[in-house]
Design a protein around this nucleic acid. Structure first.
Lengths: 312, 312
DNA sequence: CAGGTTGATGCCGTTTCGGCAACAGCTATA
DNA sequence: TATAGCTGTTGCCGAAACGGCATCAACCTG
């Protein structure tokens, strides 16, 4: 089902690989064929699409415009294919997800497992990245669904849903703080803290609050892995900071305690956004998973806010 | 700039014309070429796209899915073209508008004239239809912007704006009713009325109200042309019903008087919707005109509701 | 039944496409 | 500084796709 002109697909491959010869290898054709299709496109449009550097090609402004069009075409082709297949009963395709690390502990594995229980032939590709990288991958068409901290998102993305979770301190069961209902930042800083590095978005949530304090002690440990931070906290090394999303299993086992953070009497929120390319209609199987994702995150938001009612 | 495979464009032409030979004439190619491209498409997709009847082709379900995809591709190609052109300064292209008749007296001519004053190379095609035909033309990709009574719109359309205007009686200056501020339906029915035929949406706004009345006199005149109804009212033949949008010039000249209609103490609203295909990003010049249209209709809505404040 | 459609097909020239090999330009490495 | 490895481009040529013409069977309309 490849009824679009080769030029479109070759262009797409060249844009992704950044090189004509690399694209040719991926496409299993000679590099000359790829080169000629690109040259033909540039002639028909009347403007160069790439800047030729010594080690590859970079998109020009016009090239980026064409890239957007080609992405729209190819993604809509996927949707068409899925529409045709869903007519004959079975779904199959691949859902590509780009998300931040806090989802990998429980939300995503639960959802994917349950979804594959029902739709066996829908495959998943998941890539964990930082929030801004998630949005970028989505813009470049390298992912279908993105989950990231709700930053200002570029106009070519659409925010499908916005869920807010309380940021809290995470400590081991035996930790002196563990018996409290909520904690303040000052109370936490009396103990060794496990702080996130700037590449994690928790850093940007906490940094402004810490900066307001009079004294800012050195963090005992800094890390860029939520998994590592969680396991360290479980071993009593110190106080980590997370939303409850990221510590599901250890919390259920009773090893970790989640203490909602209070800052000057009000909760600290971590906004999680679900994103999709705006100029796009999703394939049926992707849309279906997206709906479940939104529902599940909404459910967790509701449950957690009920478990930790807001301090008025 | 025709870098999409001929199959796409041939399919599009066949869908529009409903016949292979007719499509071939439009495309200036032999009918055999068109026939073969369609057959090739059907073979690659693995399902017939058309049902062959004695006098032409009709889309199958799969065909309609492909039609949707092809429409998305070709409309997005238009947008890409406009993006490239706007890079080199000048805009040119054609904005196709499908709208109901009430816009033709003043709103559309004013807007188009003023827009062409600024963007000389943007052309317009305007087609006047009934409300449901407007939506249908939009769905079929035969228009870029649709203006119609705000009915329930199909999911493939997006309602860009919704403006409400008061429905009123329209009478000549010398008419006995002309000195009133507002009128009720019963007051109007004491005089000869010029009623809309069912193909106009005013009919469907008024009919339920008339049906509630105890006595429903024969309408003096029935017509399907707003222009005709307006001119008849101006000649004192009877009472017509319209929003003020449709009687701009004659109202300014003082020949016609607009009397907001009261029904059981509350106004009768006529909702006007502005529509666009949902799965589509408009070319820059179309988007620009759309913005002006929304602004202008909002402005008129504001002015008219200020001129005829709602009876509490 | 005849005269007009309709879409499909076999034949054939033209165009386009793709593979191979060679080329020039650049970078990194020895 | 020379060399090896990469880049994209270009002639040449065979293969595949495309399009035009004439023809066919099936159908509707007089």
């Amino acid at each position: 089902m490849r009824f679009h002109s080769p030029a479109i697909q070759y262009f797409h491959a060249v844009r992704r690989t950044g090189s004509i010869r690399a694209a040719a290898r991926v496409l299993n054709v000679a590099s000359s064929a790829v080169s000629r299709q690109i040259l033909k496109l540039e002639q028909e449009i009347g403007s160069p699409l790439f800047e030729r550097t010594a080690r590859g090609l970079t998109l020009t402004t016009v090239g980026e415009m064409l890239a957007r069009h080609v992405m729209n075409v190819l993604q809509d082709l996927d949707r068409f294919r899925s529409d045709v297949q869903s007519l004959s009963g079975t779904w199959h395709g691949t859902v590509t997800i780009a998300c931040i690390e806090s989802l990998t502990e429980s939300v995503l594995p639960d959802l994917i497992a349950s979804h594959r229980g029902r739709a066996r032939r829908v495959n998943f590709t998941t890539e964990v990245k930082g929030s801004s990288d998630v949005l970028e991958a989505l813009s470049r068409g390298e992912a279908d669904i993105g989950i990231a901290m709700a930053l200002r998102h570029p106009p070519d993305l659409r925010q499908v849903a916005l869920k807010r979770f309380r940021l809290g301190a995470v400590v081991a069961r035996e930790h002196p703080l563990a018996r409290r209902k909520t904690v303040t930042l000052t109370q936490c800083l009396a103990f060794p803290v496990i702080h996130a590095l700037p590449e994690l978005s928790i850093y940007h949530l906490l940094q402004p609050l810490i900066a307001q304090l009079s004294e800012t002690p050195e963090p005992a440990i800094q890390a860029n892995s939520i998994d590592l931070m969680r396991e360290l906290a479980a071993r009593g090394v110190g106080v980590a900071f997370q939303t409850q999303l990221g510590i599901g299993r250890l919390s259920r086992d009773g090893q970790l305690v989640f203490l909602p953070l209070d800052n000057a009497g009000s909760p600290v929120w971590s906004d999680l956004g679900i994103y999709v390319r705006a100029e796009r209609t999703l394939p049926a199987y992707t849309e279906s998973f997206l709906q479940e994702l939104v529902r599940e995150l909404g459910e967790r938001e509701r449950r957690e806010n009920a478990a930790h009612p807001q301090v008025a």
